[in-house]
């Protein structure tokens, strides 16, 4: 199994990945509390970016409403924990279930009725906005006044209930990111991966080759939604508060797709590289501004916007593909290399 997974990955790429993993593993030993939280954020975005990438990068379906799945995942697990004391490890079943149902309904509506391309993207936004307003009025989870988890005790780590130190969350997110990376790698070289890419490149040609386009698009949405909802679970237990205005907001959806776009859509390494670059730069800028004593809301988003603008204009395939070529990881660990 492992041998099959590794098959075809260039050795230099493998070495680089190993080194990166080692670095990420020892990072908390040296990092301050603040740096650790930045590290968590980077891994969080890398994970969600990877999940989004399944839909857009692999199957070519542009979702601008992924905050929907983050929010549903977060609320489902948090509500079960707060109301019934159910462990998030069990609650995540509900999170994944709800997110998959939402994805399936969205996908069914869109793909059955020929809503494609940009209209599909609009529909995803509409779903997320629908959820945002709906949760604002959902009194079981306190509506717009926000839903709070009992604040964690930082001296002991209770992994079962996800109550513990930032370090625990960091390692949890790292484990999830590694798992997502491996899973996406395996998916991409499976039958499904081939079919997704075929659909992305030309749905008509894929269908003429016997691919049930509807079924595989649905699979992409549902799998991506399920993965994204897991990030929501961790998000809820890490931040301990949930506001529909924030978690379902369209700016969140856009924030979480910046990583893979800047890193390189459709590549496995892209989401990680993008998250690293973007979060690193944004946090660095925030620090610098703090030092200078200026605090203006919105500056980070303007920065994001300019980054996105520059990347789509000058690096339409993202940062990673040219970087990989430069580093001699031709078509890098990101894409399969046959032979």
């Amino acid at each position: 199994m492992i041998a099959r997974l590794l098959e075809g990955v260039p050795r230099r790429g493998l070495a680089a990945l190993g080194a990166l993993l080692l670095l990420l593993l020892v990072f908390p030993a040296f990092a301050s509390g603040y740096l650790l939280s930045v590290g968590f954020l980077i891994l969080h975005f890398a994970f969600v970016g990877q999940a989004w990438n399944i839909m857009m990068g692999f199957a070519g379906q542009l979702s601008l409403g992924h905050s929907l799945y983050v929010g549903l995942g977060a609320y489902a697990a948090a509500a079960l924990y707060v109301h019934f004391g159910i462990s998030p490890w069990i609650g995540l079943g509900a999170s994944v279930g709800v997110a998959m149902i939402a994805g399936a309904v969205l996908g069914f509506l869109a793909f059955r009725f020929g809503v494609a391309g940009v209209y599909f993207a609009i529909l995803t936004i509409a779903f997320a906005e629908f959820a945002r307003i709906g949760f604002d009025h959902f009194s079981w989870v306190q509506g717009s006044s926000g839903f709070f988890l009992p604040v964690a005790n930082y001296t002991t780590n209770d992994l079962w209930n996800l109550r513990g130190s930032p370090k625990m969350f960091y390692y949890l997110m790292l484990a999830m990111s590694v798992a997502a990376f491996v899973a996406c790698h395996a998916l991409l070289r499976s039958r499904m991966g081939y079919y997704w890419q075929a659909i992305r490149e030309s749905p008509e040609a894929a269908q003429a080759l016997g691919v049930n386009v509807f079924r595989y698009k649905m699979a992409a949405v549902v799998i991506s939604a399920a993965m994204t909802s897991l990030a929501g679970v961790v998000f809820a237990f890490y931040y301990n508060n949930l506001f529909p205005e924030q978690i379902f907001h369209i700016s969140r959806s856009i924030e979480l797709i910046l990583g893979p776009i800047i890193g390189g859509i459709g590549t496995l390494v892209g989401p990680l590289v993008g998250a690293l670059l973007l979060t690193g730069l944004a946090e660095g800028m925030r620090e610098a501004m703090l030092q200078l004593g200026v605090e203006v809301p919105g500056v980070k988003q303007v920065f994001y916007g300019i980054c996105l603008l520059l990347v789509v204009m000058f690096l339409p395939h993202g940062v990673w593909p040219p970087l990989a070529r430069h580093l001699g990881l031709e078509r890098g660990a990101g894409r399969r290399e046959e032979r």
Binding site: Q197, A198, E201, E338
Partner: peptide, 10 residues
């Protein structure tokens, strides 16, 4: 209608 982003073999 080739799958432009994929190799010939793919």
């Amino acid at each position: 209608k080739p799958f432009s982003g994929l190799t010939v073999l793919e």
